[in-house]
Design a binder for these strands. Sequence first.
DNA 1: ACCTGAACACCGTTCAAGT
DNA 2: ACCTGAACACCGTTCAAGT
Lengths: 252, 252
Amino acid sequence: MSVPKAEDTSGAPGKTSTGPGRRRLPRDTLSRQVILEAAERVAARDGLDSFTFQSLAKEVNAHPTSLYRHFRDKDQLVLELIDDLRARSYGGRLEATDSWREDLRTLARYVHEHLLRYPQFAVQMAARTTRRPTEFANVEFALDALLRAGLDEEDAAMYLRVFGNVVRSLASMEAGMSALDPETRDGDTLAWQLEYRRLPAEQYPRIAAMSGQLKDIGDPQVFDTAVDLLLDAIEARAEQAGRRSKPAPKGT
Amino acid sequence: MSVPKAEDTSGAPGKTSTGPGRRRLPRDTLSRQVILEAAERVAARDGLDSFTFQSLAKEVNAHPTSLYRHFRDKDQLVLELIDDLRARSYGGRLEATDSWREDLRTLARYVHEHLLRYPQFAVQMAARTTRRPTEFANVEFALDALLRAGLDEEDAAMYLRVFGNVVRSLASMEAGMSALDPETRDGDTLAWQLEYRRLPAEQYPRIAAMSGQLKDIGDPQVFDTAVDLLLDAIEARAEQAGRRSKPAPKGT
DNA sequence: ACCTGAACACCGTTCAAGT
DNA sequence: ACCTGAACACCGTTCAAGT
């Protein structure tokens, strides 16, 4: 948002073969797939600020406006990219074990890793519905695990949302923080490490007393703890339901 | 992201007094405070897409570049605005009661309402550290409640983050979804209401069986359920700790 | 000292023109 | 049919010039 654009006096001045202006592309070089693959490369290499039609076009050696033949607009391109990345990251890798708990934990870990890998799109990955096979498969997988946990259908529907939304939104926020420009991020982190430790004890007695123990806002343990808490809550809820419907609980 | 900018043939063509080009502003009309108040109006009225230096300048009848005398860049303006809005929304409204649980619930509700009210800035409100009094006060308030719950200091430090991050990130995601342009948002919502109910039962048996009961992804009950789960978990954890350190638990 | 104008280096997007 | 060029209506930001 605040990064001033550097002039393009970038390295090798001989390479005039990139960018528009050179020889016309042979027809049908472009396609959704080719463009999406280029988009993935650009996103991974240059970050969100460089994720523009101009630089995507440069990556495939085409004119920026050529992309409009293949995608209605940038939003559509991003959504398709998101689903592509998801499919490649953990599409088909989810297989139910005999532990519903492990299964949900695995799913949470996949989502977490995935969003941290593509922080540029984390917000959209977390909040948008792509209605594509990988998403369907995730929902089916999570729903199955929740039912195996012993929840009734109503609870399963609710916890699907609670678990899913917490996992996706936490991961997305973490990813967003990791994608801040380093200067900003370090400033925020240092604030917690320094400024918070210097607050006057009369006004902020609790903070002052615990200043040495405050966690960083991006502490990785936070995500795991939150997931475990949710799994505990689901387990407890399922036990309650089981006790109510069955004559007697099994092991306990 | 995809909204095409309409031409500015907006209403009253006689009002040439807005925008640059007219009579110079008397000196010292501008100030941080004046600009921030204008920014709040613009954000609330026109949304994020119109939140530009050009339209802020128009709102205060000044030249876009004049704002740079008062704010280093847009990021700084946004951060200060965020803290201002927070202070006005619930600064000083937090007072501890004799129920730590109610207190944390109140804090969660304030944050939730606040982010939903300014969805344009929800992501930054959730993820950035402003290091300003309202933020300090929130942390002090939450920390105090967690200690009153009976957590030891290490747990309190951990749960401060878990609770805070879950509350802020969930609220931020909800806010983000509410701020999508209506067409996109309705498309996503309808997907859950329609497309998911038509998936083939052979491939997605769980989804098919429960299609009538799936919650909307933005269902308001999700936030409250998540908060209550966390509060339950904190309570359980505090009880454990109490049992370990004290000779005998009080009431239980 | 404070505000403005001109300018720079970008954006996304449309549409007529080239091959 | 597919790709390109020119153009439009914007951005954030810098810096010299006006008052």
